[in-house]
Structures are given as C-alpha cells and as structure tokens.
Simulated assay, not measured.
Amino acid sequence: MPEETTSIDYVMEAASGPHFSGLRLDGRMPSSATAAAASSSADSTLTPDFLPNQPFVIGVSGGTASGKTTVCDMIIQQLHDHRVVLVNQDSFYRGLNPEELERVHEYNFDHPDAFDTEQLLECTMKLISGQGVHVPIYDFKKHQRSSDSFRQVNASDVIILEGILVFHDQRVRDLMNMKIFVDTDADVRLARRIRRDTMERGRDINSVLEQYAKFVKPAFDDFVLPSKKYADVIIPRGGDNHVAIDLIVQHIRTKLGQHDLCKIYPNAYVIQSTFQIRGMHTLIRDRDISKHDFVFYSDRLIRLVVEHGLGHLPFTEKQVVTPTGSVYTGVDFCKKLCGVSIVRSGESMENALRACCKGIKIGKILIHRDGDNGKQVNDLFGTHEVDIDV
C-alpha cells in the first residue's frame, strides 16, 4: 500500500480494483425459520391504517453526508411541542464476522444487504403500534453492535426514519406518511464525508476516498438516487433550505392537528397541546398534589377551554372611537351570551365562564335516567345558548 503521501489520483484509481458487496462472505442468507418468524411477526402487527392515534411517520433519505441529520434535527426543533423520535438506519448495520473484519476495507457498507432491514421494519411497526423498542447501538470503529447497551425509544407522536436506503425496501416505505429526499451536490457531500469520517470515526483521508470511489458513489447511483422517485418532497441544499423545512413542519402540524374526535365530530375543536398545557395536566394527575394546587391548575385549564370556545362563536364587525379620537374597527359578539351548566360537572366551569364574560347569566340543566329503561329526562332550569360541561 502506498505511503500517506500518495496522491489522491492514485487512491481514486486504485479504488477500482475487485471488491465484495455487503453480502456476508459465508454466503449465508437468513434461514427459512428466521424468515418465517419475521414474516409472522410482521403479519401479527397492526398496520398504521388500522391503528387508533397512529403516529406520523416520516422517512428522510439522501446521499451520504447530504444533510439528512441536520434536516431531521431542524424538524424536531420546530415540533418541540410534540413527542418526536429519530430512528437512524445506521443503527441497524449488521455486525461483521471475523473474516469480514480482516477485509473490512473491502466491505460495502452502502449496499442494502449491509443493513438488518427486518429488524428496522420490526422496530418501526412496534413504535407505530404504541410499543417501546430497543434500538441497537453500532460502533463504527469496531464495526460491531454493542452487546451490553442499547437505545430505548418510546412511542411518540412523530417517528422519523433517517438513512441512505430507507426508501429501498417497499415494506418500510409503505409505513411512511411522508417521504423526504435531501438533495445536495456531490462535491459538497464528499467534503462533508471526509470531515466526518476523519474526525468522528477515526479514519484517514486515503481510506475515505478509496471507500467513496469503490462503494459510496456506485451505491448512490445504483440504490440511493433511484429511490428519489419515491419522495413526496425533495429538499435542495439540505439544512440550508429553511423555507422547505418550514413548509414541511407546517404540513406535519396540520396532520397532527386532525384529532380523532374531529374525524368523528366535524364541529368539534381540539386545543393544540403545548408544554404549558401538558405541564398542568401532569400536575393535576399527580396523586401527591395538594388540594389547593389541584384547584388552581384545574381552573387555569378550564379557563383556557372557555376562552378557546368563545373564539368560535359568531362575531360581527364593530367600530369604536378611541380616547385619541381615532376610529378602531374591531368585532363584537353577534348576540348576547348566556350559559347552561350541566349538573354536576359543568358547575366546575362556571367561575371560568364568569371571569371571561362579565355579567353572563348562567342557567342549569339536569340530565338523569328515568328508572331502568335507559331513557334520559332533562329538567331545564334555564334556557340559554352556551353549554358548559367537563
């Protein structure tokens, strides 16, 4: 092998020699029993189409060092008020056997067979079904999975699958609600890969260039680039394209905002969850919370619900004269407001309604069953327009 001072041209030329693909050297394929077990496991798992509260699954693919991870991080940052998990395809590299380790420089890590797609598929389907999974941790220096540690990933609102070949297998593609391809110039990707592999993975520049010419570029042309046709969204320039990422996040928020109740009741409105709301829900669900704090935070949540509900009532335009003499065009309720409190739970919301609507009149309605026949009888003590209930 030439010295470190060998020219880059020589390295690139030498890379055209013979090599083997990501297939295992012993030629072993998964046994029929293993394949059958994996198939049975996949068949027994519910598909997303039949799951309640299914998460939004995003696939992010693109060439090596194209900026996929950067795009994923930016999406996660903007979806800060939702639970988001990132699953990297790199975690599912197959560990190399001793014979492969001896010839590791001739192993094609960019071939589809270098990944354990069956395990990736199984983990993804478990996450979609609401189960937590153990994602393996791969050591790129030892080319082995960690035997005593793993990454715990729990079910979330959004699942992001990231990797160069996440679009290659149709079974994985079919689980995705959105497919994103990060498109970056080849020269930029090569420069980034050299910097990443030399600084983070302990490799020298010659081995990086050799691997790029022998495996990375051919695999991109043969497997990665053809999968671009499956993408719903193509992002040029990767993480530098803030406009594209903002539009993607907006679309995801729209999809997540379609609550299951809204699908059943078209006129139902669900308040968007925030860290503040989730924090208050956490407090009032704590069995050790004091009575005073429970009442305080419950009243805050109820007031948010009342204010949100008032915003959906019909308004009409109204002009007023300000203290400075200018005319301000605003809005006013179309009709006078009154409330109907449904006994007993609705009574806990009366104070919030009075705090939001000064002087509002509130009546009460009692709903009970008549004997054992299941028939509901309403005793109306006041006829009003706004129902409040918990």
Rank of each mutant, 00 (worst) to 15 (best):
P2H: 14
E3N: 11
E3T: 15
S7C: 15
I8E: 15
S16M: 13
F20C: 07
F20V: 10
S21T: 13
D26I: 07
R28Q: 14
P30E: 08
S31Y: 08
S40M: 11
S41A: 15
V57W: 02
G59P: 04
G63P: 08
D73F: 06
Q78W: 06
H82N: 10
V84E: 01
L86W: 05
V87I: 14
N88H: 15
G95N: 07
P98N: 09
F109I: 04
D110V: 10
H111E: 03
E118K: 11
C123T: 09
I137K: 08
S149P: 02
V153Y: 07
A155N: 08
D157A: 09
V158A: 04
G163Y: 00
L175G: 06
M178T: 01
D183M: 04
D185V: 02
L190E: 07
E200D: 02
V216Y: 03
P236W: 03
D240K: 08
N241Y: 00
I248H: 02
I252V: 11
L261W: 04
P266I: 05
N267V: 09
Y269M: 08
I277V: 07
R278Y: 06
H281E: 12
L283W: 05
L283A: 07
L283E: 07
F294N: 05
D299N: 13
R300M: 09
H312R: 01
H312Q: 10
H312K: 04
V320F: 06
T322N: 14
G325R: 12
V327P: 03
F333K: 00
K335R: 15
L337A: 00
S345D: 09
S348C: 05
M349Y: 05
N351Y: 11
N351I: 11
N351H: 14
L353V: 01
L353C: 03
A355C: 05
K364I: 03
V377F: 07
V377N: 14
E385V: 12
V390P: 02
